[in-house]
Write a protein that binds this DNA or RNA. Structure first.
Lengths: 146, 146
DNA sequence: ACAATATAGGACTGAAATAGTCGTATATAT
DNA sequence: ATATATACGACTATTTCAGTCCTATATTGT
């Protein structure tokens, strides 16, 4: 039902954490801080570094650091890396001229689905990691002031 | 990976078909026309009629007719009926004050996820069945002209 | 009344995607 | 050297999704 996967969720949490700290952070630290599976998180961070969003450092004092500016990393980027290209229905796929769905040439919802998918893509592209940092810092400042 | 379910897809195809014909259409006819599972489609149409989008007529000459104007049925309505309320992540759920995700109070992506979910909801609410009829008719007119 | 047809609804099965685990290899700082 | 961190493949469990099957109920036409 149009849910974002745990992998993508963990990816966003980790990237937000790394971006906010501004330095290198180990997978173990993130997993412990948020109480999530280290193994799964490690896979996610590996994918993100292979895709060029993170730089991985091995060994003691190692971890992950951002490979790009927070303003240059969008939610869309993260989703594509961890969940693959957005394709809400088979017929919404722009890459095929023929409608890939079971309904063949008769598919009557192709155009509307393509439109909706395009708009969803815009939503994901319009939020960057930088936006996610600002939101959280605001909350933190409030709690500090109390 | 953020896919729309077959149930929702069949629902949209069926509603589009019924809206376009402007009269009562039997589930069997739709299933045959589009080559999709009759049993699954029947369930979907039943759900849509229970939810008040369709009126069901039993017996010979029976079938389903729209219960509302095509302009009053949105993609969001259809998705909520057939897939449940949109909830892209646990923490994006506005109905709970406490973050339902495994990360408890520390969840750092709650606000951004709520924002994205709200925007997706707007996308789904901004397309009506009427829009889907117009789109398809245009295509059909083109193929007739050839 | 009866037969044909259409929806209603529950039980069940199979397939696919998702989430998570485990073991081992490789790189690196001290 | 060794402790620590990432890399990576294999494997399992869980959940969701799609589809089927069977039976019941309502309605129309003859």
């Amino acid at each position: 039902m149009l849910r974002i996967s745990k992998k993508a969720e963990y990816g966003m949490i980790a990237l937000q954490r790394i971006a906010q700290s501004g330095e290198t952070v180990a997978a173990k630290e993130i997993a412990e801080d948020f109480g999530i599976s280290f193994d799964l998180l490690a896979k996610v961070l590996n994918q993100l570094s292979k895709a060029g969003l993170l730089i991985a450092y091995h060994g003691i004092q190692g971890g992950y650091a951002l490979a790009k500016k927070p303003t240059d990393i969008t939610v869309a980027d993260i989703l594509v890396i961890l969940e693959g290209t957005l394709r809400i229905t088979d017929c919404a796929d722009h890459s095929h001229e023929e409608c890939g769905c079971s309904i063949d040439a008769k598919c009557s919802i192709k155009t509307p689905m393509q439109l909706i998918q395009e708009r969803m893509k815009n939503v994901f592209e319009s939020m960057t990691l930088a936006d996610m940092i600002v939101k959280t810092q605001t909350v933190q400042l409030h709690s500090i002031q109390i």
